[in-house]
Design a protein around this nucleic acid. Structure first.
Lengths: 254, 254
DNA sequence: GGTCATTCAGTGGTCAGACCACTAAAAGGT
DNA sequence: ACCTTTTAGTGGTCTGACCACTGAATGACC
């Protein structure tokens, strides 16, 4: 049969591999199209799995796999049961997707810790500037509360770490930029375990915590005074000093 | 039977709802633990799906759903076949997860466009500063190439947009921070379709493209001159001017 | 008509098994 | 040793059965 086919036809650059689309990717695409076109909004239900499988002419397993992916991206959520609350819905939001993404890729050395810290510096400098410009009573209280918690004498290392995170997150949220806040939260959350472990490996953490407390207070004072530039500089200095005070953060188990 | 139970016992705060763990989430957690502990690195194979299902005592479907989620996060990749290249592996990296994440959440109005643009300003200011500080022949060529492509007279709107993106991405990559570069790429990619559509809705795009070309050239010149502060300011001005020149970007179909 | 208990129907969650496409490795023939 | 065929193991897909959940519907009683 090959003698009937001119070789120039076979060698023509119009022949390209045909990507074989996986069933679940087709379903993801279909759902994504509905979202991008505006047909699906936060809170809207999707058709039932069996219904969607019939409509898209794939198996229910393929639909489920697609839904899992989009659940993993914080886009969908599913509930068992009957009635209006049962089924799969467009989710309101969850930052867990970003957090897991960063956590895994940091662990896989796809992002270097130094790059993550630099990115953090950049994000939080910006947050500090905007927070200082956009202060209101609510955001001040939101920042002051974790600051006070960190100053409690009876605080454990874990509680301190979480209050420390809450302090930084409150500043990011005070900046008014949701994306920046979520990136800040995700980066901090992705580093929670390594930071905590580095804290644990400090024999005496009191000089470190004293330093952190002073630096947090100075940042807070600068933000309250509306001095965004100073707050940004103090924030950068603080992040780098904190990072430097935790040697185990940089060489966990190599 | 209820008369035998002290009500203070039932009301005790130690009673909490027991979260019912979904099979695929258990599998994700097991894989994640292997990654976080360092047992799995980029390029490593996972056990076969059937094997993993047996080991974790869940069904193969549960394993597949977990793998899909992690594929969606750019963490895993799978190949059909036999031999050393068959099976599921830790992936080297793909930015598609971030891009899709942003694209969907922007479409769902979970992130406001203004916040995304501000985040972009912040990222690209930082990139411009670091690029200006860390110049080498390769990064200069990487930035100059898309710049030259944009200045071609025969360029289509789509090609211009993609070269524009490549220009910004090259600067982010020249900054040397992988996470910042990937965030920049993801944000730009997530906005590709809306930007392109806004471009299409311009009756006469030549004044806009002239402006963009001039601004790109000025940014390039500032980076080459090693003036990071100027490059950052020009970048911010450029991003905001470009955004302002595309009215349809801000009211797509409301 | 209102209330309560039971049943039903539809939802997602899970599993097992069958079969397919792919692909390197193994086996068999020359 | 080389080539062809077969094999074995991989992920991809589908089907069907069953489970847990949960509001809605139905039926019984007052």
């Amino acid at each position: 049969m090959s003698e009937n086919v001119p070789s120039s036809w076979l060698d023509s650059p119009t022949w390209r591999p045909v990507a074989r689309a996986r069933a679940h990717e087709l379903v993801i695409e279909a759902i994504e199209d509905q979202i991008l076109s505006g047909a699906l909004k936060v809170g809207d239900p999707l058709p039932a799995e069996r219904e969607l499988a019939a409509r898209l002419q794939v198996s229910r397993a393929g639909v489920r796999e697609a839904i899992r992916v989009l659940e993993g991206q914080g886009v969908l959520r599913s509930s068992v049961g009957a009635g209006a609350e049962a089924g799969t819905f467009i989710a309101s939001f969850s930052g867990e997707a970003l957090t897991r993404f960063l956590r895994l890729h940091i662990a896989l050395s796809n992002f270097q810790l130094a790059d993550v810290i630099d990115a953090r510096v950049m994000l939080e400098r910006s947050s500090a500037i905007f927070a200082a410009e956009n202060l209101n009573d609510e955001s001040v209280a939101g920042i002051r509360d974790p600051l006070n918690r960190m100053n409690s004498e009876a605080i454990s290392r874990e509680e301190f770490n979480d209050a420390d995170t809450a302090f930084h997150v409150a500043i990011a949220e005070a900046s008014g930029n949701r994306l920046v806040a979520d990136l800040t939260i995700a980066i901090r959350a992705s580093l929670r375990a390594p930071i905590l472990e580095a804290f644990r490996q400090l024999n005496d953490w009191s000089p470190v915590v004293t330093m952190l407390r002073e630096q947090h207070q100075a940042i807070f004072d600068a933000i309250i005074a509306g001095d965004g530039k100073l707050a940004a500089d103090l924030t950068e200095h603080h992040i780098r000093a904190a990072s430097g005070a935790l040697p185990a953060l940089h060489s966990p188990g190599e």
